[in-house]
Structures are given as structure tokens and as C-alpha cells.
Amino acid sequence: MRRRVAAVDCGTNSIRLLIADIDPERTVLTDIAREMRIVRLGEGVDRTGRLSQAALGRTIGALREYAELIGQASPVAVRMVATSATRDAENAQEFTGRVKEVLGVAPEVVTGDEEARLSFTGATRELSGTPAPYLVTDIGGGSTEFVLGGPEGVSGARSVNIGCVRMTERHLHGDPPAHAEIAAATADIDSALDLVAVSIPAGEARTLVGLAGSVTTVGGIALGLQRYDSERIHHSRVPAARVHEIATALLGQTRAERAAIGVMHPGRVDVIGAGALVLDRIMIRFGFAEVLVSEHDILDGIAWSLVL
């Protein structure tokens, strides 16, 4: 029997809404509404340890729009998950209180491991005929999650702090970034991937599934799209050599040049170079020949969690 649910994912860079009808018996999720706003909730958190008032204002403003859409759709259940930036912030309670006032439910500030498991569910629930085990990697704004598993479930997970916003704020300051800045970001990413390798046998995976805006933007560029097309991007495959080529090009471009790319969301212009670099280093470190790009991620996993 189909159930209508609403899921909200609030990350470091964006806040997203999915209202969907889910049929658990047929394993089918049907979108009613899917929205995304770039709010940069985590702006400056790596440096200050706090959510800024400007970032809170942008996020709550977007959430008011979502609350109106949720009210119109009348779902049977609503769940909001907050991830990396909120975990790291000293004033997370202020954010939680303001969200509850607007949405009627408090956000769940999940651990990195739970974030990873939700991403895995969203990315793999509808996969069929794709060789397992899968390594699902979700490149967020503050952190990147890795989950290894297959149709039988998750066998390992690890979250590391190498998101696209965090890497940009730490290292990539030039326009375009200097070689030394890129080298520092690369070293930071590679050190985190060493931790992943110790935690889970990522090299055992037969399929790399890449999630979130950095990966889908790289997918759109690889397809040569003039505008963002989620249907064409979803489940496209990008060879490792093409990922490396795109990452290198993005890191060598000015902000204006990146902004002119047809598939580029304005809110990703500043951080896409770091996100593409993270994906490139993952593929090099674990020897993947290609990445399967998925438009279904933690947001879909949150929705599925309401019916499973």
C-alpha cells in the first residue's frame, strides 16, 4: 500500500525536500515534489565552531517554504535530518528550536555513520542488475560518507571531514586556486581516505555509486549537457579518466568560468572544484574505473526510513 511521506535533508551547503508516495511492496518511490535550496548553513563553521545568524536566517527562510508545501501535500509522516554542520556547531540547539517552530518536528542530528546508512538506502534501494558489493560515497559540504554493502545490507561505514565546502574554506582561496592550495587540499583528502581504507575494505566493492551535487554536476559536465537534466544524469556512468579531466579543468578555472557552465547551480560555483577533487581522489585511491552517478541519496533514504 502506498504511503505519502515528507523528508527534509539539511546539510552544510543545501537544504532539500522530498515529498513522495512510496510503495514498499513494489519497491517504488514516486516523487510528488523535490526541492533544493543552497543556504550554506555550514558557512564558517570549520573556523568558528558556530552557525552564523545569516546562515540560520537563510536556512529557516527556505524551511518556511518547505513547510507550506508539506502542509498542502498532507503526508502521513515527516522526518528532517541534519548532518555535518549541525553536528559540529556549538549553537546547534538554537537551530533545533527554530526548526521545530517552523516545521512542527525537531531535526534529528544524526551521526556520520547513520548519515552514511541513510545515503546507502536511498542510493541502492532501486538498483537492480548492478554488480555488488557497492561502495556508496556521498560528497557533502562538510563531510563525505562511505558505505560498503549489497542487497543484504551494510557491512561497513565511515564518515570523514572532507566535504566540498570544508575543503574550499580550508585550502582553495585563489581564483583560480594556486597549485600549492590544490596540493594542500589533495593531501588533506588523501589522509582522510587512509582512514577510510583502515575502517572498511573499500577495494572489495565492484561498483562505486556517487551521490550529491558535486557528483551529479560532474556527471552533467561529462554528458555535455547545456542545462541540468536529472533524468539523464541519474545512473549515468563516468570513467575515471573523465572525472580526473573534469576535476583538473574546474580547479584551473576562474569563478566566472565555472559559473558559465550550463549545468552549474549558482550555489555550487565556489565549491565544485573541491567536490570534483574529492571524487577524483576517491577513484584513484580505491582503483575504480568508473562512477555510477545517482540522483537518489540520503534524501530518498530518509523517505524510505518512514515506511520500512
Rank of each mutant, 00 (worst) to 15 (best):
R2A: 10
R3P: 08
V5K: 07
A6W: 04
A6G: 07
A6I: 04
A7S: 01
T12V: 11
T12K: 09
I19S: 12
D21M: 09
D21K: 12
I22Q: 08
P24A: 05
E25K: 15
E25V: 15
R26C: 14
R26I: 13
R26M: 15
L29K: 00
T30G: 05
R34W: 02
R40F: 06
G42F: 12
G44Y: 11
G49Y: 04
G57E: 13
I60A: 08
G61W: 08
E65D: 15
Q72K: 15
V76F: 06
V76N: 02
A77F: 06
A77H: 11
R79P: 00
R79F: 03
R87Y: 09
R87D: 10
Q93S: 10
E94T: 15
G97N: 09
K100E: 15
V102D: 08
V105M: 12
V105E: 13
E108R: 10
V109D: 03
D113P: 05
E114T: 02
A116R: 05
A116M: 07
S119Q: 06
S119T: 07
R125P: 15
T130A: 12
T130I: 15
P131I: 05
Y134V: 00
L148K: 00
G150H: 04
S155D: 07
G156K: 05
V160E: 04
N161I: 12
I162H: 05
E169W: 11
L172Y: 02
P176E: 13
A178Q: 07
A180Q: 14
A184N: 09
T186E: 13
T186R: 14
T186H: 07
I189D: 04
S191F: 09
A192Y: 04
L193Y: 03
L195A: 14
V198T: 12
V209D: 01
S214K: 10
T217K: 03
G220T: 06
I221H: 05
I221Q: 04
Y228K: 02
S230Q: 11
I233V: 11
H234P: 13
H235D: 15
R242A: 14
V243D: 00
E245I: 01
A247H: 06
T248V: 14
G252Q: 11
T254H: 02
A256G: 15
R258H: 07
V263K: 10
P266F: 12
V271C: 06
A276L: 04
V278L: 07
D280Y: 06
I284F: 05
R285N: 05
F286H: 02
F286L: 01
E290M: 11
L292D: 07
V293A: 11
V293D: 13
E295G: 00
D297A: 15
D300L: 08
W304D: 01
V307E: 04
